Amino acid sequence: MQTIDYDRLHLRDGDRVLDVGCGEGRHTIGAYLFANIDAVGVDLSEKDLQTARQRFSDFEVQDTPGKSLVFQQADALHLPFADNSFDKVICSEVLEHIPDYQGVLAEINRVLKPEGLLAVSVPRAWPEEICWKLSKPYRQVEGGHIRIFNATQLRHDVEDLGWNRYARHWAHALHSPFWWLKCWFWGRDDVKVVHWYHQLLVWDLMERPWLTRNLERLLNPLMGKSVVMYFKRGTDVD
């Protein structure tokens, strides 16, 4: 399930791309398959990184000069990379988990090249607020969401570092009702409607049928679960 739009991120052959908080590798692998890039995914969880490496090994990828993918364990507050070493950085559904999210943004700012581009996504405020009201355990689980982001405030936090937002969209509208149902029936594995809705989402992910793809596209501005923003320095990105 991709949240970041690689076209809006202007992903190009030859880019060096960092996925901060890559988890099980969905965006790192997706970016690698999208263009001939050097992709690096970092995360604190070695378990998630092992899953990411296994998922990548399932792809039949031909060796291409100048194209690589590496997963490594790292703290987003102390990235083990030199200043100005990446062309693009992805940070998707990560900042809501981290107490010092501004420290993470500062580290991203350090490792991004002056002409680099940044894609950030976080849960959208009002669908997230419903989840918090429906279930306390939803926000209390280990590694769970510790804040509800105001997208405007997050935008200002990034722009205070010298960046400008050049694009924005919303994603995963069909997932919002699923999480409301899951929160309403939190801890119950016997609720059929939650199971059926999950099956629908898996089917949509695997088959990508015209009906659900277009329905989600129409609903995203209204109830997309994630807000996605793209940042640059200067004004030279369309």
Score class of each variant (00 low, 15 high):
D5H: 04
Q72F: 08
Q199T: 06
L105M: 09
K113L: 11
L205V: 00
R233Y: 08
E128F: 08
D160R: 15
E115C: 10
Q54E: 14
L201D: 05
S92L: 10
M1K: 15
T64Y: 09
E129F: 05
R55V: 07
G21N: 02
L9V: 15
W203P: 11
Q50Y: 06
L9E: 11
Q50D: 09
Y32E: 14
A52S: 07
D236S: 12
Q102I: 00
H10K: 05
P221I: 05
D87L: 06
Y166L: 10
A173Q: 03
L117P: 13
H175Q: 13
H172L: 07
D43H: 14
L181M: 15
F34A: 12
K47N: 11
M229L: 08
L18P: 01
D58M: 08
S45T: 03
F56S: 11
K182R: 15
L11N: 04
P65G: 09
I4V: 15
L134C: 06
C131W: 03
K225D: 08
N150H: 07
P123D: 05
F34E: 04
C91F: 02
E129A: 12
R147V: 04
A76Q: 03
W126D: 14
R124H: 09
G143H: 13
W180C: 14
N84W: 12
I108G: 01
G103Y: 11
K67E: 07
C183K: 06
D58R: 09
G162F: 08
V237C: 13
D15Y: 12
Q153I: 07
Q140W: 02
G41C: 13
H175S: 07
G23I: 10
E129Q: 14
V158G: 12
L201G: 04
G21F: 01
D15I: 14
V227F: 02
R233S: 04
